[in-house]
Design a protein around this nucleic acid. Sequence first.
RNA 1: GGGGGCGUGGUGAAGUCUGGAGUUCACGCCGGCCUGUCAAGCCGGAGGUCGCGGGUUCAAAUCCCGUCGCUCCCGCCA
Length: 605
Amino acid sequence: MADEQMRSHYAGTLTPDQIGETVRLAGWVDRRRDHGGVIFIDLRDASGIVQAVLDPAAFPEAGELRMEYCLSIEGVLRRRPEGTENPEMPTGLIELGVGELTVLAPSDPLPFMLNDRSEADELTRLAYRYLDFRRPHMAETLRHRGRATASMRAQLSELGFLEVETPTLIASTPEGARDMLVPSRLRQGSFYALPQSPQLFKQLLMIGGVDRYYQIARCYRDEDFRSDRQLEFTQLDIEGSFWTATDVQDTIESAVVAATEAVRGLTVPTPFERLTYRDAMDRFGSDKPDMRFGMELVDLSDVFASTGFRGFAGALEAGGVVRGINAGALDLSRSGLDALVASAVDLGAKGMVWAVVEDDGTLRSPVAKFLSDAERAGVTEALVAKPGDTLLLVADRWHLAVEVLGQLRLRLGRPDGHDELRFVWVVDFPVFEETDDGGLAPSHHPFTQPHSVDEMRDNPREALSHAYDLVLNGSELGSGSVRIHDPDTQRQVFDILGITPAEAESRFGWFLRALRFGTPPHAGFAVGIDRLLAILVGADSIRDVIPFPKTQRGIDPMTGSPSPVTDEQLRELGVDLRPEVRLAIDQTPDETADPTPDPGGMLPE
RNA sequence: GGGGGCGUGGUGAAGUCUGGAGUUCACGCCGGCCUGUCAAGCCGGAGGUCGCGGGUUCAAAUCCCGUCGCUCCCGCCA
């Protein structure tokens, strides 16, 4: 067998044109149908499935075949007998009359069924991810991902971008997310960090004259998991010199369009819509607005400018706003409406007012009696309310009011699924955002170019930056910015952030030094490939588009990682475990790498 | 760190609210029959600490407490 050709064709590519040809296939038993005098095997390979027909008189061993046995078969391709064609199958007109059968490898009974009709528990699927990949849906997802990244590479290569690899063992710069750390053996007591992004390295490439860089880069953030967050994730990372924000956005659009074509087979229109951060917050109550539906926030501050209703008057006097949404025909009971108010309070609002438009156009609301005729009419008009509509009003500080309504808007109006794709750029983010203790933190990262250095210095809380996010269907796909290329601006940003020159030197000295050697103006972006793919293929979680993801506690149920290491390994690294940690490990029962019991008891004796 | 959902033969589900014999359905597994099926069919069979521990009760998959695992969300994620 070793020197023979193992296969001549792919099963799924066979057509009636090849009837009469002798073909050799290799693949797996997808289904077996043993009729006693004739045995049908659906043979599956990476391309698809074709039916093979075996005569048990010629192949006594055929009765032993079970699902997922790996086979090589040879035979003559023939038309199926009249009346036995299967129109559901791409190869349903033909079948292979088997003349030679070799079992390349038998298979144990399966821990779960590999069809797409029912889905096994995700933990089991992850413990046997290689079997999961044999399911048509997962196989298709892997192909989608491969095609998407290939198309993005092709597009950027076409545009003259150079793929450059940046290191994954770098210095820890404790900013933002928690770093994943790797102890150094050669320099005991020191640690590498895994990159949260290639940010500073790609900027160094610009300083180095690379001009146009991209990389499909693995990034690491040691924070808690979500359905759209893993410890390690993949970004399409780009950077260009002598670039404006628009140049970056055009390039990212072309790459994202290429990926969408590769996966969905459709071309989304460009340029993508653009919203300023301020407009996004004002109209949708979110910096990642879902543009697939309306229910926009409406400013009602003018309507209530001289209101006698204390709840609103107080908020307005304190410099706040009144905002509302028309949630449409919710048809909620009194307790359902009260539950909405409770969820608004959970989101941080001091309260919320609901009003239902009656058939005669009047408002039914707990506060209706406090409102003037003009106010009631003004609300109805501003929210374009018609009978049956439920209106929700929040009066509070601007940020809180719009965010609370933005959350309720999503809860009440967000479509299921992702058939429609609505990309939007959110631009002109503030340079800084307020922290809980009233200080300032970078809104994106501290290397983002402000619109105006003077404005930033004079009014840091209001100053805008050349930072922008790409949003798809309400999910943040990535962010980017024009970078600071001049050391003085960089110094002033650090100054406003309260980072002393000494601190800046110790954390980023190597980078600040580089900025002093004729740094070109440059800009860039990073797209989260996992999130993009999840939406494009309609997955609920990025785990479905990551080949080998981890569970919410950071475990790989197949390999058992992370796992304790030997004392010898720790000694070499100069690392010791804290006594209580060592005690906890010693008391933990030895978990095997495979948490799923072998399907024993069903195996033949 | 906080809140919610789930955990039942190898797999998927029902049973849990309203306690009464490990009951049911489908797939898979084992044995048998069967020459045109394609989720093949028919007959027979095996397979269980109802995640784990404790409590209430004459009696617990079911109610209560705790715990572990998976998951969703908040915090966190420059």
